[in-house]
């Protein structure tokens, strides 16, 4: 059966719910976030503990307001905890004076984001992100910090470049994101790219069996509406069939970056022999 012969009209739409929150909630969230960011970044980094507590309280309140509209189940609670931890790690990252503390805050944020991805059943991505970011990147960054950082605090660690403008830009960006997300009908329901047949809902093939031609044709509508893209085998099949050229190009980019890093990191004063 031709994979391109799926009729998208036969597929169920996941749409049906409208946005639950209202605009004033999002406005309040954005204003709170902006105020907290300004407080935390005012005149350098956090100077008094009172200001830090005030900023942290504002952030926690804003996060509570953002996630209040979810029905409370265990999965939602875990995801909310991961989200709050990710935001708190990010705030600790941009407000820490010591670069090592900032790197630890970054690790917290990225690991919590990996937890959120794990809750979204993107297991392979969560594991790879953990390995690449929290494993490789943080360790190498800490090595470079140990190599390059003097023992005492440098003035460029404390002084910031125009914190008010940066907080304003980020707040307006966040406001735009929140506005466009909260717009009803902005988030489109399921949309099929029929030129990529293996990336669609796929129940995976048994070992030793040829690739199933079009998995959707074997699934009922109810199965299809309940489908969760959780299988790493499905991800791999989609990766190496539909996106084979892109994956090969990504590998080439990795190779070129490796060569470039080796060339850039060479010491020019040392004898190459």
């Amino acid at each position: 059966m031709n994979p391109l012969s799926i009729d998208p009209k036969n597929l169920p739409l996941v749409n049906g719910e409208q946005f639950q929150g209202n605009l004033s909630q999002i406005l309040l969230l954005v204003i709170l976030l902006g105020t907290a960011a300004y407080l935390l970044l005012q005149h350098g980094l956090v100077k008094s503990k009172m200001m830090a507590w005030a900023g942290g309280g504002l952030f926690a309140f804003a996060a509570l307001m953002a996630f209040m509209s979810i029905p409370m189940q265990l999965e939602s609670v875990v995801r909310i905890c991961f989200s709050i931890l990710a935001v708190a790690g990010g705030v600790a990252f941009i407000t820490a004076r010591e670069p090592v503390h900032a790197a630890l805050g970054f690790a917290t944020a990225v690991l919590s984001a990996c937890g959120v991805m794990f809750m979204q059943s993107a297991y392979f991505i969560a594991a790879a992100t953990m390995i690449v970011y929290a494993g490789a990147t943080i360790i190498i960054f800490l090595f470079v910090l140990m190599f390059a950082q003097k023992s005492n605090l440098q003035w460029y660690d404390v002084q910031l470049i125009r914190p008010v403008i940066a907080a304003g830009v980020a707040t307006s960006l966040l406001f735009a994101i929140a506005w466009s997300v909260s717009e009803p009908g902005e988030i489109l329901p399921i949309k099929l790219d029929l030129t990529r047949p293996y990336s669609l809902a796929a129940p995976g093939s048994a070992p030793g069996q040829a690739l199933p031609p079009v998995p959707e044709s074997t699934m009922s509508q109810a199965q299809l509406s309940e489908f969760v893209p959780a299988k790493t085998s499905g991800l791999g099949r989609s990766m190496f069939t539909d996106y084979l050229l892109a994956i090969e190009l990504a590998g080439t980019v990795l190779l070129v970056a490796t060569i470039g890093a080796i060339v850039l990191a060479q010491n020019p004063e040392r004898d190459p022999s």
């Binding site: 970044l41 979810i70 990710a86 935001v87 941009i94 980020a170 909260s182 988030i187």
Partner: peptide, 25 residues
């Protein structure tokens, strides 16, 4: 929809935090 919206907001907040850090540090 609300779950997607919350996740998109989380992504936006992380992006904004990274933007603040990139512009100020």
């Amino acid at each position: 929809h609300s779950e997607v919206q919350n996740l998109l907001l989380l992504g936006g907040i992380l992006f904004a935090i990274g933007l603040i850090g990139f512009l100020t540090r």
